[in-house]
């Protein structure tokens, strides 16, 4: 545009732009974006096209074979199944609970600020801390079974039972996350024009009808955002699973991130881990792109 130094460019209106100053402002962030996001993504694609037998022998080019092996590997197929099942259960559950809590805690009730904060607290503490606390809570001699015993019920096995472990993870993850999504929805509720409710009430709409025909349509953009953001974050679930079950028992909680971690670190199978990473990143990106389309169409 211009070869003038920043000093002289600054003096003239309308010719603000020049490169050196842009580089100093944006350079570090662009460097971080490229080196810390794009480069490792490219490295994963590169590694996935090669094979690293036992991590010691020299790598060889295998093209797409790595993906072919992966999609016939029962362990990987199981982890796809577990991740999908987990997502199908946990996402609607969290959003329904978050929406119900948002509506409740948007009411004018005494102490509602404190109630909101208490529900939000688990979001603020590190996931690994939450997992550690729940690990004790789920023990056979822990408080959950203690409460069941109060009602004369036998104890559950929670994390050690293939039938209960994934449900237990759902409980922990929802306890952690619901307050976060609730806050987004409360922010959305506050933006709804109160006149809409008055008009609906005048038309004789009851509580449920007002929720169904005013609240939900007016919250559409926030709900779409929460749905996608929640789906991505649950797709990438790692810490609670790695700490509580390590994917077990019998692979019943072996979500994708845990499967990739095991492939990369326990089995040192770089090629397979890279291929699985590429699959995971592609799915996550696809969801994020859908999010942007939803949000931009919601503006019209």
């Amino acid at each position: 545009m211009t070869t003038a130094t920043p000093r002289t460019a600054v003096g003239r209106r309308g010719r603000f732009g020049d490169w050196p100053i842009a580089v100093t402002f944006l350079g570090p962030a662009v460097l971080a974006a490229v080196l810390l996001r794009l480069w490792p993504a490219a490295r994963a694609v590169w590694d996935s096209l090669r094979s690293t037998p036992f991590g010691l022998a020299p790598t060889t080019w295998v093209g797409l074979d790595q993906y072919r092996w992966l999609f016939t590997d029962p362990a990987f197929l199981n982890s796809l199944k577990v991740t999908a099942l987990f997502g199908i259960v946990v996402n609607p559950l969290q959003i329904a609970v978050a929406l119900a809590l948002a509506v409740l805690f948007n009411e004018r009730i005494r102490g509602v600020g404190l109630m909101r904060t208490l529900v939000f607290l688990p979001v603020a503490i590190p996931q690994s801390v939450s997992a550690v606390i729940w690990a004790v809570a789920f023990r056979p001699d822990g408080p959950l079974n203690g409460v069941l015993a109060l009602f004369g019920l036998g104890g559950l096995r929670y994390l050690t039972s293939p039938g209960q472990a994934l449900a237990s993870i759902v409980v922990v993850v929802s306890w952690i996350g619901v307050g976060y999504w609730m806050m987004f929805l409360i922010a959305g509720l506050k933006e709804i024009d109160p006149n809409l409710y008055d008009a609906a009430a005048l038309d004789g709409a009851g509580r449920w009808a007002r929720f169904r025909y005013v609240t939900v349509p007016q919250l559409r953009r926030q709900l779409a955002f929460v749905l996608v953001a929640d789906t991505v974050s649950n797709l990438l679930l790692f810490a609670p699973v790695q700490i509580l079950t390590k994917g077990g028992p019998d692979g019943s909680t072996d979500v994708l991130m845990n499967d990739i971690f095991e492939r990369a670190y326990t089995e040192a199978d770089v090629g397979a881990a890279a291929a699985a990473t590429v699959v995971l990143t592609a799915v996550a990106l696809a969801i994020v792109v859908v999010q942007f389309r939803l949000l931009s169409s919601g503006k019209d």
Partner: peptide, 11 residues
Amino acid sequence: LIPFDAIAIPL
């Protein structure tokens, strides 16, 4: 847009 955790292992 690339979630950090997804590329943490290659990084």
